[in-house]
Computed example of a mutant assay.
Amino acid sequence: MKAVTIKILKDELKYKSSEELLELCLRLSRFKKENKELLTYLLFESQNEDRYIETIKLEVDQMFEEINTKSFFYIRKSVRKILTSIKKQIRYSKKKSTEVELLLYFCLKLKQFKPSISRSPRLQKVFETQMRMAKKAMYTLHEDLQYDYTMLIEEIEN
């Protein structure tokens, strides 16, 4: 079966009752963990974005503590897993300020990580790429926020 376009889905959903929509949402949530996570964000977390960001930061802290530091292979693998998780959370939010905040926090944790990432060119590249993405997203924000994040970027880079 081939999936139809978003427009066709949107048009079809207009004709459904609220009970039918509720049933469709619940059915969707049963099939994929990401669907359930997105629904959780939309229903419970989206009203308080600051709390959502703090929750993710705590998760990131815990994930960084659990990294196996025996070799850079394991460190890279764990860092990619953390980054994938952060990107997923950013996709749920769709807010540029959340994206900048989480990417900069990730870069800060990576920079502070022991053993130093400077001994691994691949980890250094991950750091540089995420800093570049954070800066790009930052330039779409209000000037006051840009200034605040610029100060944070300078702190991370030094």
Rank of each mutant, 00 (worst) to 15 (best):
I8S: 12
K125F: 03
Q47R: 10
L39I: 09
K94G: 09
V126K: 00
S116Y: 00
P115D: 02
N48V: 09
E101N: 11
S116G: 08
T140W: 04
V60C: 08
M1R: 08
Q89G: 04
L103W: 01
K111L: 02
K77G: 05
I8R: 10
E128C: 05
V79N: 01
K111H: 04
T55E: 15
R51G: 15
L22P: 07
D50L: 12
S18V: 13
I67M: 02
L108P: 01
A137W: 00
E23N: 14
Q130A: 05
S78V: 04
K96M: 06
K88R: 06
R51P: 12
K14H: 07
F106Q: 06
I90V: 08
I90E: 05
T98G: 04
K2A: 11
K2D: 12
F106E: 05
K36G: 11
Q146V: 10
V126D: 04
E49R: 11
L21C: 05
Q124P: 09
S85L: 09
E157Y: 00
E143H: 07
S93N: 08
R119L: 14
F44V: 15
S71V: 07
E20H: 01
K2L: 12
L104D: 01
F127E: 04
E19A: 15
E45N: 14
L83V: 02
E66R: 11
F106Y: 01
Y15R: 13
Y74E: 13
I153H: 04
K95A: 08
K14E: 11
L39K: 03
L108R: 06
V100Q: 00
R51E: 15
I82S: 05
K57R: 07
